[in-house]
Nucleic acid binder design. Structure first.
Length: 227
DNA sequence: GCGACAG
DNA sequence: ATCTTGTCGC
């Protein structure tokens, strides 16, 4: 798929904040999706002491969740990990991997937050805007916000509140397992996002999309080409 | 000023 | 994220 470059990649947090504030105003948190036939999972891993960023995209059919295609991209790491600026470290490589895709996904599940972010612009928002594809943030841990305890049952959830606003949901994807943090990335509402995340869950805590992407980005099973 | 802090 | 073996539990 083709992706139009909307900005240069900043080298400092100060420059990154300006970009986040500009793009955050363009994020859409209402449903604007087409029929979902393909769901993509995205993840990033690091090699060579972190100097190389490896991005993986896995496209699964929906709703049957069978792997249809995957791409990889390697790039030198140019931005450090700073909470609140994860996208500037990972998105450049992800974009490159997405451009190699033959199938254009109808929905993207990201490993990280959507609008559940200090400036309402997590990695799912960034990827959603750059690709103009509906995107959901599914994070394994909390970045910002508070929430009440939730039932142990699969499907239970509680609003994630930050500065008086509901920015996401804390969702129990499997009974008695630690919950995940779901938030809108772009072109999707929270209720719809929760629904899709649950529909991508089979027998594990994380969606099959992110499990595939994670496996590919970390090269487990030695199924990847060296480069 | 003191903590908190996606991956 | 990454460094790393065995081990407890279903």
């Amino acid at each position: 798929m083709k992706i139009n470059q909307r900005h240069d990649w900043p080298l400092t947090a100060e420059e990154a904040i300006i970009i986040q504030q500009q793009l955050a105003s363009e994020v859409i948190t209402s449903d604007q999706l087409t029929t979902v036939q393909h769901v993509a999972g995205v993840d990033v891993g690091f090699t060579e002491s972190g100097s190389t960023t490896r991005a993986a995209v896995a496209v699964l059919s929906f709703p049957d969740l069978q792997l249809q295609e995957y791409t990889l991209a390697y790039r030198p790491t140019t931005f450090p990990y700073v909470p609140g600026f994860l996208s500037f470290r990972e998105v450049p490589a992800v974009i490159e991997a997405l451009e190699k895709l033959n199938i254009t996904p109808d929905l993207i599940l990201c490993d990280g937050q959507g609008i559940a972010h200090p400036r309402r612009f997590g990695i799912a928002c960034h990827l959603g805007l750059l690709t103009d594809i509906p995107a959901i943030g599914v994070a394994k841990s909390l970045l910002v916000g508070k929430y009440d305890e939730l039932p142990e049952q699969q499907g239970a959830w509680q609003p994630l509140v930050y500065r008086g606003e509901t920015v996401g949901a804390v969702l129990r994807t499997r009974t008695r397992v630690k919950p995940v943090y779901v938030s809108s990335g772009h072109r999707i509402s929270l209720p719809t996002a929760i629904d899709y995340v649950l529909r991508c869950i089979t027998k594990y805590r994380l969606p099959e999309t992110t499990r595939w992407a994670d496996k590919l980005a970390s090269n487990r099973g030695s199924i990847l080409p060296a480069n």
